[in-house]
Write a protein that binds this DNA or RNA. Structure first.
Ligand code: FES
Ligand code: FES
Lengths: 160, 160
DNA sequence: AGAATACCCGAGTAAATTTGTCAACATTGG
DNA sequence: CCAATGTTGACAAATTTACTCGGGTATTCT
């Protein structure tokens, strides 16, 4: 398994915030309950997201968290990279440390890691919270008005 | 970082075996030295690969390891999945346990993990050891002589 | 003002995983 | 036989994960 609970919980939490976007702050307890995340743990995760500028907080009674930007301007990559760090399969495909491996120019496995990295980023860079919300709406009730470009949905059953 | 050293060392080792394919068994010590892998550790890894039917061993003096199949019939996925287990970003996209998550109908993050999984498999299923060997030959021919300071940062930009 | 609500922060920690190391043994070639 | 090499299982340090806990601070409601 690739991701830790940080990334998984974090994306769930951000999605939950996206659902309530524009309707005031959402208390941590609500996020934790709805997405079934240990509240004390989520506290830590959302602190990271806050410091990264993805969410902002409102203190005091009736406070909570809200998205800092519009859901269409927050990508899955923003969330996952913030919480998990680089999703590179190996050190040598990180920008930070390009000289960690000794014979990088001859190491052919490096090109494998690069291709995996690019492939992952194709997915997570190209998907925003708004895309997730749209998918969710479409699944929950498939009537409604909106007829816009079907960009990436491929009608796979989401079970149940 | 996604992969552990198991997968990284393992793919290096398999690549090394691919280079020597058809020329008799390669001792563990040679693989370890050429790919700079702790020999005692590689011992464990190659045992896994042997049990998975990817390599076979020749005991005794002048013994060593060799690929069980042709390099073009061994994919990167074969190696990585053997050593790392499923590369799924989350439990819920494993065939083994599809009902592990309780409210899968509301969970839109699952589709994200599915897309990442598919994307990774597009890469690793479609690449064989022979592909890696071919790439290696090509690189050695083009920059045969000198060891230049290469900036691979350019390739990072491609992933957008 | 005072109480309730809710974020903020740093410590601690048990369990799991990773990344090896080591020793004894089995097999083969010369 | 002897040396080279694979086979196996045990052990363990270091790191990471996935939390828990306790006190502190800011804000709002009455
Ligand atoms: S593993 Fe990093 S360059 Fe080969
Ligand atoms: S995380 Fe598994 S279904 Fe949502």
């Amino acid at each position: 398994m690739i991701l830790s609970t940080k990334g998984r919980y974090g994306l769930k939490a951000m999605f939950e915030l996206g659902l309530h976007h524009g309707t005031g702050p959402v208390p941590l307890k609500v996020i934790a309950e709805k997405q079934r995340i240990p509240e004390n743990y989520l506290e830590q995760l959302i602190a990271i997201l806050r410091k990264a500028g993805l969410v902002r907080s409102v203190r005091g009674a009736q406070g909570g968290y809200m998205l800092m930007k519009q859901p269409e301007n927050i990508t899955v990559a923003d969330v996952l990279l913030t919480l998990e760090g680089p999703l590179a399969p190996s050190e040598c495909v990180l920008e930070s440390e390009s000289s960690s491996c000794d014979n990088a120019e001859k190491c052919i496995t490096r090109t494998v890691w690069e291709k995996i990295l690019i492939s992952i980023h194709d997915v997570i860079d190209g998907m925003t919270l708004q895309d997730m919300i749209d998918d969710h709406q479409k699944i929950n009730h498939t009537e409604e008005n909106d007829q816009q470009e079907n960009q990436n949905v491929k009608e796979q059953e989401m079970m149940l």
